[in-house]
């Protein structure tokens, strides 16, 4: 922003009695005729000071008003909150035998592979694997004949426990994400996002 006391921004004098600083800002002072020579010197000083003060005030208001506006716009554009999550029922623990697995579809359409590798019937014996590849986010799918999850994007592969065994995810030592599970009154629950984009079949 240019200010009136910035030498770059001074306009060429337009006429003899044209004040070179914005006269509307300091109109009264500028218009006051100087009576004595030394009073005139003082007037110039005061005029100078007032011009400077008004530019500072102007600069401050510009920054305050448009700065606040820009900050609000930034907050407005930043996503409001993470997607809503909730606990949903999956299966009866008693009916979910060791070694069994099922494919669960969350409300946001994501497929979750849920398996029971352990015996005891505690939460730790169940596993719920995300179908989102930890590499760059493509969807993996289960390959029964190879006993692995496969990601078509860069040929990533994961064993049944979700550990990467091939491709970029293995090089990076990644695993498939896990969803939180909970057992309550003999029933298995999973915490999943409640909203998302529908697939072509839904909507």
């Amino acid at each position: 922003m240019m200010t009136p006391d910035d030498p770059e921004s001074q306009p060429p004098p337009m006429g003899d009695n044209e004040p070179s600083s914005p006269s509307w800002l300091i109109g009264e002072v500028a218009a006051t005729p100087a009576h004595a020579p030394d009073a005139a010197v003082e007037k110039i000083d005061r005029r100078d000071f007032l011009a400077r003060a008004t530019s500072v005030a102007m600069g401050a208001s510009l920054v305050a008003v448009y700065g606040a506006f820009a900050a609000m716009a930034g907050r407005f554009l930043y996503p409001a909150r993470p997607a809503l999550k909730g606990w949903l029922y999956v299966a009866d623990v008693a009916g979910f035998k060791r070694g069994a697995s099922l494919s669960y579809t969350a409300p946001d359409g994501a497929t979750v592979a849920i398996a029971r590798p352990g015996e005891a019937g505690k939460v730790e014996d169940f596993i719920a694997l995300s179908s989102t590849c930890p590499h760059l986010g493509c969807k993996v799918h289960w390959e029964g004949q190879n006993q692995r999850f496969f990601c078509p994007c860069h040929n990533g592969a994961f064993d049944p426990s979700g550990r990467a065994i091939a491709g970029p995810p293995q090089e990076a030592g990644q695993s498939l994400g896990k969803y939180p599970l909970r057992i309550d009154g003999g029933l298995l629950y999973i915490e999943v996002p409640l909203e998302g984009l529908p697939g072509p079949g839904e909507a």
Partner: peptide
């Protein structure tokens, strides 16, 4: 005999800035 115009910058520019605020 007053000058009939005043320069756009900074006088009028400042007016417009204030009007905007």
């Amino acid at each position: 005999d007053k000058p009939k115009t005043f320069p756009f910058f900074p006088d009028h520019f400042y007016t417009e800035l204030s009007v905007g605020l």
